[in-house]
């Protein structure tokens, strides 16, 4: 079960800024629960952001990225109404893809 990525994309002077807050526990695999049992690692490994099917940012993550990963970046181009899609995959094979229109 995954939760939607919150995305905001705004274009100004020909440059689009994308802000994304992914919903994920980003468990390192080194923490113990109250009973002293290790909580298995569960974290996003791959992220891709695309604009009209063109990848504008991709990333590989390790468990040192904070829970509910936050990413902000800018790219040249983009126009209001065009689509920004954020896709992630985690180490357990779960994945999620969400989309927003550029404002």
């Amino acid at each position: 079960m995954t939760n939607p990525t919150r995305i905001r994309a705004t274009v100004r002077d020909g440059i689009t800024e994308v802000r994304a807050r992914l919903s994920h526990v980003m468990e390192t695999g080194m923490r113990k629960n109250a009973a002293g049992v290790l909580i298995p690692a569960h974290f996003i490994t791959d992220l891709a952001v695309s604009h009209n099917d063109r990848v504008v940012l991709s990333a590989q993550f390790g468990p040192s990225v904070s829970a509910n990963p936050y990413v902000v970046f800018k790219f040249r181009g983009g126009a209001p109404g065009e689509r920004i899609r954020v896709t992630w995959t985690d180490n357990l094979g779960e994945s999620r893809s969400d989309e927003v229109a550029i404002a």
Binding site: I15, L57, Y70, V71, V72, K74, R76
Partner: peptide, 9 residues
């Protein structure tokens, strides 16, 4: 085309 002006946590 992507600017190296990033933020993350």
């Amino acid at each position: 085309g992507t600017l190296v002006d990033l933020q993350t946590e």
